[in-house]
Amino acid sequence: MNDTLHMITVDEQAEIDYRRWVDSWLYHLDQIPPLLETTMLLAAPRVGVSRGGSRFDRPQVTGGGYIDNIPITDTSTTVDADLLWATLHAYLHAVATKAGNLPPLAEHDRLWNTTTPTAPPDARARAIEATGWLADLVEHVVDWPELAPLEDELFALIRRMKGRYRSAGTARRARPRACATCGEVAVVVDWVTPGNGSPKPVQVGVCRVCGQQYAGPA
């Protein structure tokens, strides 16, 4: 029995390379919210204060974990949080300039209203919004090679921080799911910040074929 050897065509290889690029691009974006959350948490003062107002000389062990045993102010984590925020800020602005439009969060978010951005207390929630908006433009970003230097800078920073802050875990974007309306496997599910003022993200989904929206897991 003879098996026919399938030779990958140039177009097929291009599609494979494109899908790998998309997966890598989305993977890096997905790491930003948990990295910001971790660095902001580690940068917060965690040394106890007595009733008399004197500060303990050493970190107090509450649970034996890494977060419970850091110095009163970890300057390096503050710098890392601000650097990641500022680098995301620069990339987001560059993409928005190429896209010719701003996301809804641009009206009120610090990612847009400051020229020397520092990570705000709600950095994780804001980053979820920002990276979600970026993810919707992935098919356009691939055609803007002039953004590559900023992209390389942002993603290299993310990889370095992933190596340092292992407690941030690894976030992975869910694969598209089947749509109950049109049947296509095109429902993209993500975590977004609700519009009711709550900082707790919620899971939502939208079908990229028919537009059907889902509240909660699709």
Rank of each mutant, 00 (worst) to 15 (best):
R172H: 09
H140T: 04
D152I: 02
A174Y: 05
D143F: 05
A119N: 06
E146R: 05
F155I: 05
G163M: 04
R124K: 14
L137D: 02
I128Q: 10
W133L: 12
V138N: 07
V138R: 13
E146D: 15
L137H: 13
R160S: 14
G163A: 08
A130D: 03
F155E: 06
A156K: 14
R124D: 06
R173D: 00
T170P: 00
K162F: 00
A123Y: 03
R164W: 02
S167V: 13
L154N: 06
A178T: 14
G132D: 11
A123P: 02
E146K: 03
P176I: 01
L154F: 07
A130G: 04
L150A: 10
M161Y: 12
G132A: 07
A123S: 15
S167D: 10
A168T: 08
F155C: 03
E153P: 00
H140Q: 15
K162A: 05
D152E: 15
V142E: 05
A178K: 11
A174G: 01
L147V: 07
D143Y: 04
Y165F: 11
L154S: 02
F155W: 14
P145S: 01
P120L: 09
A156C: 02
G132Q: 10
M161I: 07
I128T: 02
P145C: 07
L134K: 11
T170V: 15
